[in-house]
Every structure is written in structure tokens, then in C-alpha cells.
Amino acid sequence: MKNLIYIIPILFGMISCNEQVKQPKEWQFEKTIALDGINPIGITADGNDIFLSDGDHNRVLKVNTDGEILFEMEGFDRPMHLDFGKADLQITDKMTTSMLQERALFVPEYGRDSIAVMRDNKMDYLVINDSLDAPAGISVYENEIAIADFYTNRILYYNGSQWISFGKEGKALGDFYYPTDVQITADKIFVADAYNNRGQVFDKTGKVLTEFGQDQNFNAATGIYVSDSEIFLTDFENDRVLVFGMDYQLKQVLESGIDKPTDLMVIEDVLYITNYRNGEMIRYALKPIMEK
């Protein structure tokens, strides 16, 4: 009987720990961060350093988590959704051509039909044996690159050895109507299919796998971000962000503080969303539901 008395508290302790681990969480609004004179379109991070593209002022800025400008890079032509990474591809400064040897910031220039590559404040350009027409988004994953080419309604994808292109204008599954953002994961390519008002998912041969959000009344799905467990899609005209599970089912709708969102990213358990019109960065945190 004594042994039984000792075992019961231990079992209750184990159950309590399991309940804490399984406690459901959701994204909760924390604050609005004003950005001084910045109209952000794209957002990315290198570690804890945040970078924003300001297409209205043709620049890219590094800011801290309070939105203070740490430095800025000028000379772009309508920079869009940007990303950090490294891939074994050629770059050029218009005079000489070399291979990219280190991690860099990739900036699609919508107005120049090019991909700028920034290292130590030096601007080079990605060498592509193809023509771009208003590139709107880029994703770099290990030795892979995907570019959302807005006016050609396609994704241009480098798989580590060669470039392939997939997509065409249309509304059917696998078609695009102005893709604006893209993200590569370990086995898939996710696309913000802006004016088809949905997200789409492809394998790395360009075969379409599924669509999502098509029944959620989107009005311009402009930015996409994929974490380990969730997919985020901005709804620009409806002033909201929709969060989907990896089963493509809707989990949560975020609206507090959101006004013309263009892009977003997650750093640990913090979600940053760019508000284009008001020049803001909105912060959400992943917290247990019971804390609401």
C-alpha cells in the first residue's frame, strides 16, 4: 500500500507535464511598430537582423526589433520580397563574372527585371540565362533558388544544377495570375498566387500538388511564409493574415493591427508582418490560448 501511495503522485506529475506540453497555442497581437518613412514590401532576416525592402523609395534597410533604422542600402529599382542565402551560381557586377562564395541578400528588382545580390554593401547581379519580367519574390534554400516572375505568370526555379520554369497565366490548378511571393522548403515550393486569391504548392519538378485558401475570400494574396508547422498567407485588400496547418486547413485569422499586409516572417515564436500603407511592422507572439 505504501508503494501505491508513492506511485500515485508521480503518475499525476507525469500527466500534468504531458498536459503542459500539449497545451494549445495561438498567435496573439503584441504591438504595432512604427517605421519612420518606410513603406515596407518585403521582410527577411539573417539571424536576428531584420531587413525590409522599401519599394517606394528604392532602398533596402536593416532595422532592429523596435523598427529603428540601423543602415540603409540605396540604388535599387522597386525592390520586392527578398531573402538571404547562398547558392552556387554566377554573379556579375556588369564588368566581371564570378561565383557566389558566401551568404548574401537576394533582392528582386521589379523595375529593373533583375536580381540584385548584396554582400558588404556591394551590389552584384545574379546571372540568369533567361529573361525576367518584374520579379516580385525570391526564395533561397540551400543550393536552390525560386523566383516569382510577376508578368510572365511563372516560377523560375534553380534546382542546384539547372534552371526550370513552370506555370502560365490562367485560373486552373497550376496556373498563376500574377505570383508575388515564393518559398522553397525541403521538398516543396509554395507560391502566393496573388490575383487567383490563393496559395499553391508544387513539387521540385514543377508539378502542382494542391491549392489552399481558395475558399477563404482572399483579395490579393501577396506574401507567403512557411514555418515547420504552419503556412501564413497575407490578404492585402482585406487587411488580414490567414494561418494554415500543414494539412492546408485554416487554423487562425489574424486581423488586429493589420492594414494592407505585404509580407511576413517568423523568428522563433514571434511573427512579424509588414503593413505597407501605414509604414508599420506588426508583432504577434505564439502564446497559450489560456493567456488571452
Rank of each mutant, 00 (worst) to 15 (best):
Y6R: 15
F12N: 13
I15Q: 07
N18E: 11
V21Q: 14
K22E: 07
K25Q: 08
W27P: 00
F29P: 00
D36M: 11
I38L: 11
A45P: 02
D46P: 02
L52W: 01
D54C: 10
L61E: 09
N64K: 07
N64Y: 05
M73A: 15
G75P: 06
F76E: 04
P79F: 03
P79H: 08
M80R: 15
M80E: 15
A87H: 06
S98R: 12
M99F: 12
L100M: 15
R103C: 08
E109C: 10
S114N: 12
I115D: 00
V117Y: 02
M118I: 15
R119P: 02
K122G: 06
I128C: 06
D130M: 11
D130C: 11
D130K: 10
D130H: 10
G137S: 14
I138N: 01
I138E: 04
E142D: 13
E144K: 12
I145D: 01
I145H: 06
I147P: 00
I147R: 00
A148Y: 01
R154H: 03
I155F: 01
Y158E: 00
S161P: 07
S161M: 12
Q162L: 13
G167M: 01
K168G: 08
G170N: 07
G170M: 04
G174C: 12
Y177G: 09
Y178Q: 15
Q183L: 05
I184Y: 00
A186E: 15
F190W: 04
V191Y: 01
V191L: 02
D193N: 04
V201A: 02
F218V: 10
G223V: 08
I224D: 01
V226W: 04
S229F: 14
S229T: 14
S229I: 11
S229N: 14
F232H: 08
F232R: 02
L233V: 13
T234I: 05
D239G: 03
R240Y: 08
L242H: 02
G245P: 05
L250I: 12
K251S: 11
V253P: 00
D259R: 07
T262E: 12
L264S: 05
M265I: 11
M265Y: 01
I267V: 08
E268L: 06
D269T: 06
V270I: 08
Y272D: 01
M281F: 03
M281L: 11
R283V: 12
L286V: 06
E291I: 03
E291S: 09
